[in-house]
Computed example of a mutant assay.
Amino acid sequence: MKRKALILCGGWDGHQPELITQRFGDFLTDSDFDVTVERTTDILEDLALLKSQDLFIPVWTMAKEFPYAYFETISEAIGSGVGLAGCHGGMCDAFRFNILWQFMTGANWVAHPGCDGTPYRINIRSSSNPLTEGIKDFDILSEQYYLHVDPANEVLATTRFPVVKWYHSANGEVDIPQIWTRKWGHGRVYYNALGHHNDVFDIPQAWELMKRGLLWAADGKRIAVEQGLSADEFKSDKGMY
Rank of each mutant, 00 (worst) to 15 (best):
L214M: 13
R39I: 01
L55Q: 10
A206L: 01
F138G: 10
D26G: 03
A77M: 04
S80F: 05
Y167F: 07
I203Q: 11
I203R: 11
T105E: 07
S126T: 07
L50I: 02
K221T: 02
V189K: 05
G228T: 03
N192C: 14
R222S: 14
R121Y: 00
G228C: 05
F33I: 04
Y120L: 04
H196C: 04
F66Y: 14
L19A: 12
H186I: 00
L8V: 13
I43N: 04
F103C: 06
V164F: 03
I78R: 06
G172H: 06
G79Y: 10
S75D: 15
T61A: 11
L47C: 03
R39W: 02
N198K: 11
G185S: 09
R182Y: 03
A48M: 03
Q53V: 03
S52A: 15
L50K: 02
T158F: 00
V110P: 00
R96H: 10
V174G: 01
A5Q: 12
G90C: 05
A224W: 10
T29V: 06
A69T: 13
A152R: 15
E45F: 00
I179V: 15
D54K: 02
R222K: 14
V174D: 08
D175W: 11
G185K: 13
N192I: 08
L229Q: 15
I78L: 13
L147E: 01
N192A: 02
G187D: 04
Q144D: 13
Y120T: 00
F56C: 02
Y70N: 15
L28N: 11
G195I: 01
F97A: 12
H15L: 05
A157F: 02
D137T: 12
G10P: 12
K211Y: 05
D93M: 12
I43Q: 00
A170M: 08
N108D: 06
G134N: 09
G79M: 10
F66V: 04
E65C: 02
L100M: 08
V174C: 09
F234W: 14
Q22A: 13
Q178A: 06
C87W: 05
E133I: 06
C9A: 11
G134M: 04
A218Y: 03
S128Q: 14
Q144I: 02
W207M: 06
W60R: 01
G90I: 04
V59T: 11
G83C: 03
N129D: 15
A217C: 12
K165S: 09
Q22E: 14
L100I: 04
S236T: 14
Q144V: 07
I7T: 13
